[in-house]
């Protein structure tokens, strides 16, 4: 095997992980500032210019926090759970394309880690194992609120995964491929899939919000009922890992939504200047992150029974109708 190729993959992976970690730190800052504006407050503005060093201060505070492990907790799983939560949020980035390819000193480097012919299924697979961290965190804490939170999370994630899977079918049918790179290329030829698949985009976005437990689907960590949900017993860096996973997942789903429905890295002049690809994708991610924060700032939380009823009785039939209509239209049109 080509040693330079291995080196290239390692460098790309490190860049993606660094992007995830730094993105996490500044997404918390972005969310706090944006939420403050929605609620006519100012938000964190003391640490550094315009509060830009706030994430660093928070990180240092979390490192020096005392690490508590409940006496009757299952220690091994209690320590494993935060790791299992962070891992899927990082490895899901492997199939997201950032651009076409760039040339550095005569070597053509594609701007994605892997272009596999089952890219969309890879995302489904990683999303389906992401729930283990939450389940184990709740169970291994040996405490009632975390257990209730993690049971809610399991039921919610399994219910919304079905709609999520069906929402993927629209872009797959339209582009005739499961590879993320081909889906973006097809959107450059025709139109962004949000125009051809408006219902599909809405279902996808609602389902991923439920998958990552964001408002208004944040039942597993509803503070008023469940204290902190599945991470009640965690402190210090272990708590920070859960926090990190949640925000990296926010960024990841924004990137996937942008890739599947908003044209991914494509934009004006991206053909002649490939460096513009990552910038366009970043812009789309930031806009979608704002939408997620905006939803949190304005919508109340669902009641638990309504959340399950919404998932099974509205989302799933709507997703099935969307698949059916898309397939019929594709078969009828030449």
């Amino acid at each position: 095997m080509d040693i330079i190729l291995v080196l290239e993959w390692v460098i790309k992976s490190i860049i993606l992980i660094l992007f995830g970690v730094i993105g996490f730190a500044y997404t918390t800052y972005y969310e706090r500032r944006a939420l403050a504006r929605i609620q006519t407050r100012i938000g964190p503005n003391r640490a550094g210019p315009a509060g830009l060093l706030q994430p660093v201060a928070d990180g240092i505070k979390l490192i020096f926090n005392e690490e508590l492990i409940p006496a009757k907790a299952d220690k091994f799983l209690f320590l494993l759970a935060p790791v299992l939560t962070v891992l899927p949020s990082l490895i899901i980035w492997a199939v997201v394309p950032w651009g076409t390819s760039i040339t550095i000193s005569g070597r053509e480097i594609p701007l994605y880690l892997a272009d596999i012919n089952v890219g969309v299924l890879y995302i489904m697979a990683v999303a389906s194992i992401a729930v283990y961290g939450i389940v184990l965190a709740g169970w291994s804490s040996n405490s009632k609120y975390p257990l209730l939170g993690s049971l809610r999370a399991t039921a919610q994630i399994i219910s919304y995964e079905l709609s999520l899977g069906l929402a993927f079918v629209g872009p797959i049918l339209l582009s005739n491929s499961m590879s993320m790179v081909s889906i973006v290329e097809k959107q450059q030829e025709t139109a962004w899939f949000i125009i051809l698949q408006p219902l599909g985009f809405v279902i996808f976005f609602l389902a991923v919000l439920a998958e990552i437990n964001r408002a208004p689907f944040d039942m597993p960590e509803a503070e008023q009922e469940l204290v902190g949900g599945y991470h009640t017993e965690y402190s210090g860096m272990k708590f920070a890992l859960f926090f990190m996973a949640e925000y990296i997942k926010m960024i990841a789903i924004s990137a996937i939504a942008a890739t599947l429905f908003l044209g991914g890295y494509s934009g004006p002049w991206v053909g002649s200047f490939p460096w513009l690809g990552p910038i366009y994708l970043m812009l789309k991610i930031i806009i979608l992150l704002f939408v997620i924060i905006w939803i949190r700032g304005t919508l109340p939380r669902f009641r638990y029974d309504r959340l399950m009823a919404f998932g099974w009785k509205i989302m799933l039939p709507a997703a099935l109708i969307n698949v059916f209509l898309t397939a019929v239209v594709i078969m009828l049109l030449p």
Binding site: A125, S128, V131, Y132, V135, W139, S150, L151, T154, I157
Partner: peptide, 12 residues
């Protein structure tokens, strides 16, 4: 993903 999560759910 799906089947083993249901197993864990029942065990818990």
């Amino acid at each position: 993903g799906a089947i083993m999560i249901l197993f864990l759910f029942v065990i818990m």
